[in-house]
Write a protein that binds this DNA or RNA. Structure first.
Lengths: 207, 207
DNA sequence: GTCTATAACTAGATAGAC
DNA sequence: GTCTATCTAGTTATAGAC
């Protein structure tokens, strides 16, 4: 490939697909360069190490998703009354951007949701710092919004219930259609977002 | 080690600990034999391949946990009235054995919960069949019990809500204390089981 | 059952020509 | 920016002595 910058994005696309399918450790840089149809040395030239590539692949998707989450929180807090947005609205701001990011709006992002699960399960040295940087401010915002909507809950309950919600989302993204028995029909991201929001909102409102 | 059968269990204990800490792929058989203080060739002699060892490590823990889950379902269905056990009771039969299995009742099982998460995230060829064999009958039992307790829910809703519950449990087991901010205090498995059961039961009862 | 030694292979990374 | 060739270090697995 001699088109400028194409090699870089071909590598990112191929890596994302393979990481999502097989897991970070079960994909070699040889697999990636073969999949991207570029030279073996290209990864080292464009990204440095494999860990740096993993971070780049993950960052390309997580940054816009978390930006959308924070923007959604801004929007709902601005338009809500003095008592703040209700639980469903807060959870929607958190859940929907992740599912939208997993739909193939932009080419090559099909495997995003699995990639995401992989990066959370097997962080590795470089990713842990990126994860913390990306999620700490978001979790603080979620915590504040939820405490306002559910003032009777303890901080500990807010934390654990948010963690349960996050776990449900994460598990769904990682396993997707695997293990689904034939009797249960597949659902699209939109319907699933509604199901998860209803489930988690009821969970947050539990006594 | 010349005590009979000791080498085998030393390998299982060391492997369980390391797999839970670092992930299945990031632990070599050299790491395991070093940790178990046995010879490098012992894994091949006692288990065959690394994949077979992974399956043996996982099976040793999951079989008793799932047996306890099925026994608990038997017990609550026998002692319940004609309308069957309520949602909390059913969820308890599913959740509590997993958390009890993660407590160091038997030496060496400290890392069980993380190991469990690893095996679900990175199954690999041999594990997938074991997972299916272990979970399919259990999920069918859970499905039947929950449909009886919540007859107004569709099969699809039962399935997804059980999956959300499972995801919350799985995510907690995998991440445990990582990422917990200082302001939230650590809780024991017993308290956490109660929190999760309350959260999930409310989620199942959502309209 | 346990050990040493090693075979056979794959990994990530890079030097240096083009 | 791209390529080939190769280095170094790691991997699983096993043969064969004890």
């Amino acid at each position: 490939m001699t088109e400028p910058g194409k090699t870089r994005s071909r590598i990112l696309d191929a890596a994302e697909l393979l990481f999502g399918e097989r897991g970070l450790d079960r994909v070699s840089i040889r697999d990636i360069t073969r999949g991207a149809r570029v030279n073996l040395a290209a990864i080292n030239y464009h990204f440095g190490t494999k860990q740096d590539l993993i971070a780049a692949v993950f960052e390309r998707r997580i940054v816009p998703v978390n930006k959308a989450r924070l923007a959604a929180l801004d929007a709902i807090e601005k338009s809500a009354g003095k008592r703040g947005p209700k639980v469903e609205t807060i959870l929607e701001a958190f859940i929907r951007p992740a599912l939208e990011g997993s739909e193939p709006a932009s080419k090559g992002s099909v495997a995003f949701s699995k990639l995401f699960g992989r990066c959370l399960s097997e962080p590795g040295p470089g990713l842990e710092a990126l994860l913390k940087r990306q999620f700490e401010p978001l979790m603080d915002r979620m915590d504040a919004a939820l405490r306002k909507a559910l003032p009777h809950l303890s901080r500990s309950d807010i934390y654990w219930r948010l963690k349960f919600t996050y776990g449900a989302l994460h598990h769904w993204m990682l396993t997707k259609d695997t293990f689904r028995p034939a009797r249960v029909q597949s659902v699209d991201a939109e319907a699933l977002a509604r199901k998860l929001i209803a489930f988690a909102a009821a969970g947050f409102r539990a006594p």
